[in-house]
């Protein structure tokens, strides 16, 4: 009971002054004003950001367009370049000098390889055997040894699938493999056939001639 009385008396002792009420109104006005200012500021900032965003978006779009244009131009250039240049293939091992011949080819295969070097359009084991005066199976073995060493390549004779033609691996043959039936190839084929025929004939002739020479020397 005493406490209630005390509280009552306390409330009764606090009268509301004019200063307090003015302060409250002023304070609320100030806050309102500040809030409005802040809102305005925020709005203006948002506007600015929107503007910046729009301009930057336009910029990005513009840049994308430029990049797209450049890419298509480059692609066009690349297509043109690819059309003009062929892709470099791995070159075969080349025996390009007498020194290579001596150092890279075993002595028993040298004669066969030297004959093969003169055959632009290739030769069969029988063709080589005719020139070396060795048997066909032996030359076939030698040619296959050279093939295994990667110095010759093989193809079947289009006229007789049982025959295998050996060709020396060279940069010329390697790149021109596709155009096997050109006019120049037919000319080379013709020249080689004539040369081979001549060689067979002259071989027989020189054998006879050598015999005669030896006889003459013996007599003298």
């Amino acid at each position: 009971m005493e406490a209630e009385k005390f509280e009552k008396s306390k409330n009764d002792k606090k009268p509301k002054s004019n200063i307090e009420s003015n302060f409250e109104t002023n304070f609320s006005l100030i806050i309102q004003h500040t809030l409005e200012e802040v809102l305005e500021e925020v709005h203006s900032q948002i506007k600015n950001v929107r503007l910046d965003f729009k301009t930057s978006l336009r910029g990005i779009e513009k840049e994308i367009k430029e990049i797209k244009a450049l890419t298509s131009k480059n692609r066009h250039l690349l297509v043109n370049l690819a059309g003009n240049t062929s892709v470099e293939e791995k070159e075969p091992e080349l025996i390009s000098t007498g020194f290579d011949l001596l150092t890279k080819i075993p002595s028993h295969l040298r004669r066969t390889y030297k004959i093969m070097l003169t055959k632009e359009i290739g030769a069969t084991a029988s063709d080589v055997a005719r020139e070396t005066d060795k048997s066909r199976p032996l030359e076939s073995d030698y040619l296959n040894q050279l093939f295994e060493k990667g110095l010759l390549k093989k193809k079947t004779d289009p006229n007789n699938p049982r025959k295998i033609i050996f060709i020396v691996k060279s940069q010329d043959n390697y790149k021109e493999e596709e155009n096997n039936h050109s006019f120049s190839d037919q000319m080379i084929l013709h020249q080689q056939t004539v040369r081979d025929a001549k060689k067979t004939l002259s071989g027989q002739f020189s054998k006879n001639k050598n015999k005669k020479l030896q006889e003459m020397r013996k007599e003298s």
């Binding site: 080349l94 025996i95 390009s96 000098t97 007498g98 011949l101 030297k114 070097l117 003169t118 060279s170 940069q171 010329d172 040369r195 001549k198 060689k199 002259s202 002739f205 020189s206 001639k209 020479l213």
Partner: peptide
């Protein structure tokens, strides 16, 4: 270059064959 050297070697060998065909001793 290597390509030309191989051609040269081939042509020297071919020259030998041609001379042999022409009955040179």
């Amino acid at each position: 270059d290597r390509k030309q050297r191989q051609r040269s070697l081939k042509r020297i060998l071919k020259l030998r064959d041609e001379l042999s065909e022409d009955n040179f001793d």
